[in-house]
Design a protein around this nucleic acid. Structure first.
Length: 565
RNA sequence: CGGGGCGUAGCGCAGCCUGGUAGCGCAUCUGCUUUGGGAGCAGAGGGCCGGAGGUUCGAAUCCUCUCGCCCCGACCA
């Protein structure tokens, strides 16, 4: 490809609203342009990278025995009504009507459509297992799209769905997909971890997320520094290490804390450590108003809390509800003599000389002991894991890192097949619902994650397998005949084996060098008068910055060696 | 959804408070010089100042409405 003919509009400055590095660099490198909130054009360079990711995904999915299909993006409402998700999915589902006022949605995921496809065609256990996938544009009307391709509303996703006659067959496919995903992200040269995760709105009980490690990630993951245990913080089990403590000896005392509402304020005012404080959060749930207790220095985990309650939904109560439940304005709630059910984190049980709200304006209680002063509380693991917490599986401790979710694999079970009647006849001629699994990969997000992990001040440093071109030939001055001829010849020769970009623009050397650094092609061949006199050109590796003079005849072999091809 | 902010040339921004001919840098185009790390000089083009309504002799500027974009939102309990 000739740079002079390519739509590759690089920018010196990044737009003011770009937040994360991958977004800034993708815009500056002329890969993407925003069309609307969370909706982007992929320009030629960006499209090439996305195609590279897709190709790797496709190869590995095919190798793993899955078959590619393509489902419609516009899905009739009836299918979603059949599964019950038309009402359950909420506002992320973009709904629309056709000219006959029939209702449709833009597919954010395709369990319904694939289940419909399979129920029409599959009759017998002999036709199972089956794993079907597609690479397609999805739409989710996110509340707050951000970070460029990392959290868009429209995005490219590989989604696969498997159908099985037995749980064992699903287990095997789940492991098969786990291995395929590992190969995919290894081939993308990403640093990643597979972690245990919550299942969210998709349904099912069990899942793993594939997380690319990056500080800009939106998820926190807890991983044991000794064994292999790793989990999304939403799910990471916490093992309480503290021994039982004795009951408090001092009687509970009410102290005045005018205007002190936050843990920080009360802690500073009473000179009590946040770990000695009991944070009381009032929740509205489908099972009524409930209080959740965590230690002052801990954070409530709403997923765990909801599971402990066995509730369908939980929502932090507003001021008025707090006042109704506790008799005090927000900021002074406490578990002692509270009239609503109390669910406490295990760590709260160990507090024996604690501080908590008095359920009375401008007052807190001190010398509070959990076992003595609110014995009716139920205990569960309802807080977020912290760095240093004990691993639930071994004697190690957690470290907390940030991750970008690029892949997610689920065991769905029979949720959709039962709701939609996707059944088959087993060996005994009995009709049974297919057991399903589902497996997703964010294609654009994977490209963005690769940049988050591979860049420097000057720009992107593409891992070879994702790079839009393998090699860039850069003639320093195209007005010099010798330079131009040599560059053209090298471009022709290299193009027979590699994807090559020729920067044939009549620009100053500095401009070309800066653009080359920015778009991050792995290998650069610089052709200039100076070195040409010795019959040599300069080869520069983007990642290491290392340069070396190479004879013109050796360029091809040398570039191949650097690329490992 | 709630709170806040911003919409002025392709991009980044000033001007708005205190109403009076719309500016700067980068980018673009032309010419000359320059040519191994985002060149210099000279010149040129490019604006429904997001939209609608209002106040005013006069609105980018003040008021109202509206659309779009961005940021923050358990850790106040």
């Amino acid at each position: 490809m000739r740079y002079s003919r390519m739509l590759l509009p690089t920018l010196k400055e990044s737009p003011a609203d770009a937040e994360v590095i991958s977004q800034k660099l993708m815009i500056r490198a002329g890969m993407i342009r925003k069309v609307a909130a969370g909706i982007y054009n992929l320009l030629p360079l960006g499209h090439r990278v996305v195609r590279k990711v897709e190709a790797i995904v496709r190869e590995e999915m095919n190798r793993a025995g899955a078959q590619e299909v393509l489902m419609p993006m516009v899905v009739p409402a009836e299918l979603w009504q059949e599964s019950g998700r038309w009402d359950a999915y909420g506002k992320e589902l973009l709904r629309l009507k056709d000219r006959h006022e029939r209702e449709f949605c833009l597919g954010p995921t395709h369990e319904e459509v694939i289940t419909d496809m399979v129920r029409r065609e599959v009759r017998s256990y002999r036709e199972l297992p089956l794993n079907l996938y597609q690479i397609q544009t999805k739409f989710r009307d996110e509340i707050r799209p951000r970070f460029g391709l990392m959290r868009g509303r429209e995005f490219i996703m590989k989604d696969a769905y498997s159908f099985h006659a037995t749980p064992e067959s699903l287990d095997r496919e789940y492991e098969n997909m786990h291995r395929a995903y590992t190969r995919i992200f290894e081939r993308c040269a990403l640093q990643f971890r597979a972690v245990e995760a919550e299942t969210g709105a998709i349904g099912g009980r069990f899942s793993h997320e594939f997380m690319v490690l990056a500080d800009s990630g939106e998820d926190s993951i807890a991983s044991c520094t000794r064994c292999g245990y790793a989990a999304n913080i939403e799910r990471a089990e916490v093992r309480e290490p503290h021994p039982e403590r004795p009951l408090g000896e001092l009687p509970v005392e009410r102290v005045s804390t005018p205007g002190m509402r936050t843990i920080e304020e009360v802690s500073a005012f009473l000179k009590a450590a946040p770990s000695a404080m009991i944070k009381t959060l009032i929740y509205e749930t489908d099972r009524g108003i409930v209080a959740a207790l965590v230690r002052g220095d801990h954070q409530l985990n709403e997923f765990k809390f909801r599971n402990a309650l066995n509730a369908a939904w939980v929502r932090l109560a507003d001021e008025a509800a707090v006042e109704r439940a506790t008799g005090a304005p927000a900021g002074f709630a406490g578990p002692v003599r509270l009239k609503v059910p109390v669910y406490a984190d295990h760590a709260v049980r160990r507090i024996f000389d604690g501080v908590t709200g008095a359920n009375e304006k401008d007052a807190h209680l001190v010398h509070v002991s959990a076992a003595r002063d609110f014995p009716g509380a139920s205990y569960a693991d309802i807080r977020n894991a912290l760095a240093g917490d004990m691993c639930p599986r071994c004697e190690g401790a957690f470290e907390i890192r940030r991750g970008i979710e690029v892949g997610h694999i689920f065991k769905l079970g029979t949720k959709y097949s039962e709701a939609m009647g996707a059944t088959f006849l087993d060996e005994e001629g009995r009709e049974r619902p297919a057991i399903m699994g589902c497996y997703g990969i964010g294609v654009g997000r994977t490209a963005a994650a690769a940049i988050e992990q591979n860049h420097d001040e000057a720009g992107i440093i593409w891992p070879g397998p994702l790079a839009p071109f393998d090699c860039e030939v850069l003639p320093v001055n195209v007005n010099d005949e010798g330079t131009k001829k040599t560059a053209e010849a090298l471009y022709e020769r290299l193009s027979s084996e590699l994807e090559v970009l020729l920067d044939d623009r009549d620009e100053r050397a500095g401009v070309k060098f800066k653009d080359a650094d920015l778009i991050g092609i792995p290998v650069r061949v610089v052709v200039g008068e100076r070195n040409l006199k010795q019959g040599k050109v300069e080869l520069k590796v983007r990642k290491t910055g290392e340069t070396k003079l190479v004879g013109i005849e050796e360029v091809s072999a040398e570039v191949g060696r650097v690329l490992g091809k």
